[in-house]
Computed example of a mutant assay.
Amino acid sequence: MLSTVAPGCALLPALLVDLTGLALFWWIGPIVVFVLIPILDVTLGCDGSSPRDEDYEALSNDRYYRWCTFLFLPIQFTGLAIAGYMWARPELQLIDKLGLTVTMGVVSGIGINAAHELGHRAEHLERRLAQIALAQSGYGHFIVEHNRGHHVRVATPGDPASARFGESLWTFIPRSAGGGFRSALTLERERLSRKGKKWLSRDNQLLQAWSMSVALFGSMILVFGPGIIPFLVLQAVIGIGLLETVNYLEHYGLLRTRRPDGRYERCSPRHSWNSDRLVTNVFLLHLQRHSDHHANPGRRYQTLRSSQEAPQLPFGYATMVLLAAVPPLWRAVMDPRLLDHYGGDITLVNRKPRRRFCRIRPAHTAATARVSPALTGRRPTRARNPISQDAGG
């Protein structure tokens, strides 16, 4: 139930400002996500426990956990309506409007996470709710690209949502957003073609999702006037940026090995960065157990397991998002961990094209020599090469 705290931030700003007189609470979204949660993550630490195999079926079928995701949506859209009303009030100052917009943008981005969980399910209701959750961000193509594109190409150079070694967040976001959009168009066009249907069809999942955004934004503009448009656009952009930042840190530099037949090895836990930070996992529906999610995408969030095989992030997602925003700091912390994961062999990482990595000499020691052990959290060591050459396709 604590996962509903994030969308609940959208319900609180006006109330807290009225109660305390502090305009700071217009910014409650980023305060909770990027200040409070990282502090709690460090304070409460990690939880690496996993569900027992004998409990899997009962846990997976327990509908309590589904209602926790369902509850996200009414809170999310009630908050959006309240925020639209507050934005339209003439007495709200510009800086307060900006804080309210950033708060709603954070909620929008976390709403994409709820859509991610719902969109992986086979049940028609949950997949439809995933489309609704994406309406606020206008990112309705995410489910199509994520399920049929990203999960197939993850940790390969052909996946726009897998960040490359040395690629900054600010380069990655437009590449991933643009590449994901183009991929979704191609994937849906091919699916409709196989079914003998045209693009302008009721079965077009992209048009279904985008029409929900048009209906939502159109209703907001009709009720609150065209002055609400900057609010709607900016909160959506912030939500998309937050999603793509999480994409950036989930697979940074990780690469699946290409087999002799040209196919990539099967995706395993070692191809996603993992984190067992307790608080962020609770707030984000165990999204940080991303390694098990990619190895077993059919698992519901409450059944995801921790993995010792997976490379580990030094902090939770909420903290890593802040690090990613500062590329030199990100590389100082993450590059040594990535290279250590591959035993110092830079030829095994997912690299940026046209970059002359031969200038890095030697790759592992040169990167780690610039970084204090206090930043990496462990002594640099040469690990055994974890890549399997004969894994299944």
Rank of each mutant, 00 (worst) to 15 (best):
G8E: 11
C9G: 12
C9W: 05
A10P: 02
L11P: 02
L11D: 04
L15H: 01
V17E: 01
D18K: 10
L19P: 01
G21A: 01
P30L: 04
I31W: 04
V32H: 02
V33L: 15
V33P: 01
F34C: 09
V35Y: 06
L36G: 13
L36Y: 11
I37V: 15
I37Q: 12
L40C: 15
D41V: 10
V42P: 00
V42A: 14
T43I: 12
G45T: 12
D47T: 05
D47F: 05
S49R: 14
P51V: 13
R52E: 15
R52L: 15
D53G: 10
D55I: 08
Y56T: 12
E57G: 03
E57V: 12
L59R: 10
D62R: 09
R63C: 00
R63D: 02
R63H: 08
W67Y: 13
T69D: 06
F70L: 13
L71P: 02
F72T: 14
L73T: 13
P74G: 08
P74F: 11
T78H: 07
T78F: 09
L80C: 12
A81E: 09
I82V: 14
A83E: 06
M86E: 14
W87K: 02
A88G: 08
L94I: 14
D96F: 07
D96E: 15
K97P: 08
L98C: 12
L98R: 00
L98S: 08
L100G: 04
L100A: 03
T101W: 03
V102E: 03
T103R: 03
T103L: 05
M104T: 09
M104A: 01
M104V: 09
V106M: 13
G109T: 10
G109E: 13
I112R: 01
A114Q: 11
A114N: 15
H116G: 04
G119S: 07
A122R: 13
H124I: 06
L125M: 05
L125Y: 04
E126D: 14
R127Y: 06
R128N: 09
Q131T: 04
A133P: 02
L134T: 08
S137P: 06
G138F: 11
G140Q: 08
H141Y: 12
F142W: 05
V144T: 15
E145P: 07
R148W: 13
R148C: 02
R148T: 07
V152P: 00
V152N: 05
